[in-house]
Design a protein around this nucleic acid. Structure first.
Length: 495
RNA sequence: GCGGGCAUAACUCAGUUGGUAGAGUGUCAGCUUCCCAAGCUGAAUGUCGCCGGUUCGAGCCCGGUUGCCCGCUCCA
């Protein structure tokens, strides 16, 4: 992994952000080659999801349209989505039940005299449940022997004697912690409580906000999808593992709107499709796995549906385990329902065929573009002590930052001129480079590290018979082709 | 957030008991070169992460700080 990071730095893929000023934790800059790579992965996704989506189960092309929405939205959006509210205030977690509570919403029953009796936490305004529990767990004690106080009045050290609202054992509550994962900013000149806004923590909400606009303008019918690629921001507690968990990242998300009865089928469909797609851009199936979320792992929006499947990749830093690349979640009608309530507007869909009015369910394949870049980099990194560079980047030709390089074998006898002519032809269609300096072996080695799949070399024979040699990155083998077939040669391999 | 480790050129790293900042690779220029970092000649690149202290003198000792790495915690 360290070697990969060094190569990315050395060859201009990825740099630490603000490096001149000692950097800033959790942010990264993409260099010339990294930007090309990221754009290529992005464009491949967009092409395969929006321009030319897969065929549905019945063999007809799916209908998916794209949007590009604002990073800053009305803060009420994040209240509806569940991002603000619960996550702006100090929270305590229960280690036993994995439930999370607002610190200031919890009350505690404490025995007036006997400190050995455990304390019972309960949600403010819901004392009935704890009264039942008291009978079970504190036999022989009557309710009037206890006093009620707020959890906030208790020292953290006393949490060891507190039984959580849904727990059976004492001491499972964590200390109160701030979970403000959203970046805050102010809109307008005046900075006060009323002008607070947030950088979006996911791109998905921008899609839900425009669901009705798309329905009204694009003549789409359920089932259909809306896709978006863009930046999202999360103020992660611990950014780690290179670009895997960063505070600013890019997502590729598609919300697939379908009839509730069909949700399960579509969920399976998209899980399969997305796994295949990652393979199509070069990730080996051995390093990919599809993993269902456990019940206690499901996000608030995905409870009660067909669940969430993570498409995971075996990163060097997770191996032999896996790290998330994409989640395919059944969000049921959570988001549309929330926005319908919070915004007080009707978002129901009228299905003319079924003669039915309903809120569509949503299947969401949500992938990380920047995580995808990392997976592609890890996959491409291939050590080879036999060759001069000791390593080469085995990118799928579709993703390679540079598609081909053009070299005159030596810088004389008309070869540079011929190389320039070929370069001028190819550069209008492909990201190609020309290099006339130094020994050809050095130039091949450089292209190996950049992951350039093909090198076209003009040699002494080229001038006579109008042919060039093609050097293959992965085999280092060569073949000779006619110079006027070079364009076709590349076109065939870029698919 | 807690604990441990690390920080010297673009990369990998030397740097002795405190005494003028080094190597290899890479990069650039020229020559050479008909197929894989060859060779020759030359060049550029460092506030030794940052701030302060001790000292005649600090890359080296001390304190603080920032960043990175590892383990916990966290990752709705």
């Amino acid at each position: 992994m360290d070697d990969l990071v060094a190569l990315c730095k050395r060859r201009g893929f990825i740099f630490p952000a603000s490096e001149l000023y000692q950097g800033i934790n959790g942010f990264w800059d993409y260099g010339p080659l990294g930007t090309e790579l990221k754009n290529n992965l992005r464009d491949a996704w967009w092409h395969d999801m929006v321009r030319c989506p897969p065929l549905g189960p019945d063999g007809t092309p799916l209908s998916i349209v794209g949007v590009d929405t604002a990073i800053i939205q009305n803060p009420r959006v994040w209240e509806a989505s569940g991002h603000v509210g619960g996550f702006n205030d100090p929270m305590v977690d229960c280690r036993e039940t994995k439930n999370r509570y607002r610190h200031d919403h919890l009350m505690v029953l404490r025995h007036r005299d006997d400190a050995t009796v455990p304390m019972f936490a309960f949600m403010e305004g819901e004392p009935e449940a704890v009264h039942k529990k008291l009978k079970k767990l504190a036999k022989g004690r009557e309710l009037d022997e206890f006093e009620t106080l707020a959890l906030t009045e208790l020292a953290v050290a006393d949490f060891a004697h507190v039984i959580g609202p849904d727990a059976k054992a004492a001491g499972t509550l964590t200390e109160p912690r701030q979970f403000n994962l959203m970046f805050k900013t102010y809109v307008g000149a005046v900075q006060n409580e009323d002008s607070i806004a947030y950088l979006r923590p996911e791109t998905a909400q921008g899609i839900f906000l425009n669901y009705k606009n798309v329905l009204d303008t694009m003549r789409v019918k359920v089932p259909f999808g809306i896709a978006q690629i863009g930046k999202a921001f999360r103020n992660e507690v611990t950014p780690r593992n290179y670009i895997f968990r960063s505070r600013e990242f890019e997502q590729m998300e598609m919300e697939w709107f379908c009839h509730p009865d069909d949700a399960k089928t579509w969920h399976e469909f998209w899980c399969k499709q997305r796994g295949q797609w990652w393979q199509s851009v070069g990730l080996r199936s051995d390093d990919l796995q599809l993993r269902p979320h456990e019940a206690d792992e499901l996000a608030h929006y995905a409870k009660g549906g067909a669940g969430t499947f993570d498409i995971e990749y075996r990163f060097p830093f997770t191996a032999p385990g896996y790290g998330e690349l994409e989640g395919v979640a059944h969000r049921v009608d959570f988001d549309l329902k929330q926005h319908q309530e919070h915004a007080k507007s009707k978002l129901q869909y009228f299905d003319a065929e079924r003669k039915e009015r309903y809120l569509p369910h949503v299947i969401e394949p949500a992938g990380g573009l920047t995580r995808g870049v990392l997976a592609v980099l890890c996959e491409a990194y291939t050590a080879d002590p036999e060759r001069p560079s000791k390593v080469y980047m085995k990118f799928h030709p579709r993703l390679a930052p540079i598609k081909a390089a053009i070299f005159p074998l030596v810088a004389k006898e008309g070869m540079p001129e011929m190389a320039h002519k070929l370069y001028q032809e190819l550069r209008t269609r492909y990201a190609v480079e020309i290099d006339v300096k130094q020994a050809v072996g050095k130039r091949y080695a450089r292209m190996d590290e950049a992951g350039t799949p093909y090198c076209f070399t003009i040699d002494g024979d080229s001038l006579g018979d109008q042919t060039v040699t093609v050097r293959d990155r992965d085999t280092a083998g060569q073949q000779r082709i006619a110079i006027d077939k070079v364009g076709d040669f590349l076109a065939e391999r870029m698919r």
